[in-house]
């Protein structure tokens, strides 16, 4: 049962990492345009030279 000493904090760390990732994505505006984001995923990529401009 000593394994719990490692596993439980590990599980909590993972949960915390998930929460931090969510808060970061929220802060960086990834939830501002859900409709557009859905389409961007399937849209064509820009040619590389244009993407730089």
């Amino acid at each position: 049962m000593e394994i719990l000493v490692f596993l439980v904090p590990l599980a909590l760390m993972l949960g915390l990492a998930g929460l931090i990732a969510f808060l970061w994505s929220l802060r960086s505006g990834q939830y501002d345009d859900l409709e557009g984001a859905a389409w961007r995923a399937v849209g064509e990529d820009r040619p590389p030279e244009e993407a730089q401009g």
Binding site: D32, D33, E35, G36, W39, R40, G43, R46, E50, G53
Partner: peptide
């Protein structure tokens, strides 16, 4: 639609000196 989004973003990015053109579809 996604078509409009790409068309607008490309059309505006093509103007020299434009650094960001981003459509919010919502």
């Amino acid at each position: 639609c996604a078509g409009c989004m790409a068309k607008i973003e490309r059309g505006l990015s093509a103007i020299p000196d434009v650094t960001l053109a981003r459509v919010n579809l919502t």
